[in-house]
Amino acid sequence: MSIPVTDPDDIRERLDRVDYLVDDGAATALFFALTLGQPLLLEGEPGVGKTTAAKALASMVGTALIRLQCYEGLTASEALYEWNYQRQLLAVRLAESRGRQLQDADLFTEEFLQERPILAAVRHRGPIPPVLLIDEIDRADDEFEALLFEFLGESAITIPELGTVTAEHAPIVVLTSNRTRELHDALRRRCLYHWIEYPEPARAVEILRRRVPTANTALLDSAAAFLGRVRELDLDKPPGLAETIDWVAALSALGATELVRTDAVRTLSALAKTPDDRYTIAEALAELHAADSSGDGDPGRATG
């Protein structure tokens, strides 16, 4: 395998080209995920861009992204592989009608094997290994973590009927977690770990500019500044970067060129996800507006 990356700065520039902006920490983490061949565990508050990091990595490297969304009750047959039982039954009937004797080995072959995301990542053919995103691993139950160990350690999957399948090139594995459940130490030990912080205002503006190219600078600046204030409020669900992007996109779809209160209130549903939050943010907006108009008022009076 050869993904030609020289250092974290190189990663940062190349991610920049696919419109994903990272700080030093994330660049280093992604660099090691590529070069050391170890899985990377990303944690952070919801909406700071954990999933997007994996997507950006895949498009930067120019390879396939295979995604496994975790949920409670996720089992081997949904994550690793499954046999196609219906086809096996058909094959049995067919063999019977032709009067042919069937062996075990006839039914457990490639033909009847259904790939699920992890097996697909292991058996991926091509010069560059795929990026496997195991999203929100904290949603799966802890039994599932144990299922991953062989794959994370060895990049291999054992199928009892077929034997062990080992990856030609170890896939680039990115796991994300929202920390709703404490992950097992054994899983953490096998991974590189990076905690993504919410970006500081300057970078947040830059990210918004990339994601919402139609928005103008005045709108972006004031929106990012307002977001800084909103995140300090006592909210049920503080808006993450993803919500902010949606909100600015909504504002700019309305043709707003700066943060006007009426537009902001109309698009608030992109930002506030509970009725209480909506009320709190609307109040903050009113305050901001009041402060603005008094600030504008003074020089006006001076000239008048």
Binding site: D7, P8, D24, G25, T28, A29, F31, F32, T35, L36, Q38, L41, R188, R189, C191, L192, Y193, H194
Partner: peptide, 28 residues
């Protein structure tokens, strides 16, 4: 992992050393 990380990416600044160490040694 940290040793490999140091080899893969020379710690030419304190920032880089910090991130190399934190990503490979800390896991929560």
């Amino acid at each position: 992992t940290f040793t490999k990380a140091l080899a893969a990416c020379a710690p030419d600044s304190i920032t880089r050393l910090y991130w190399s160490a934190r990503i490979s040694l800390v896991n929560r």
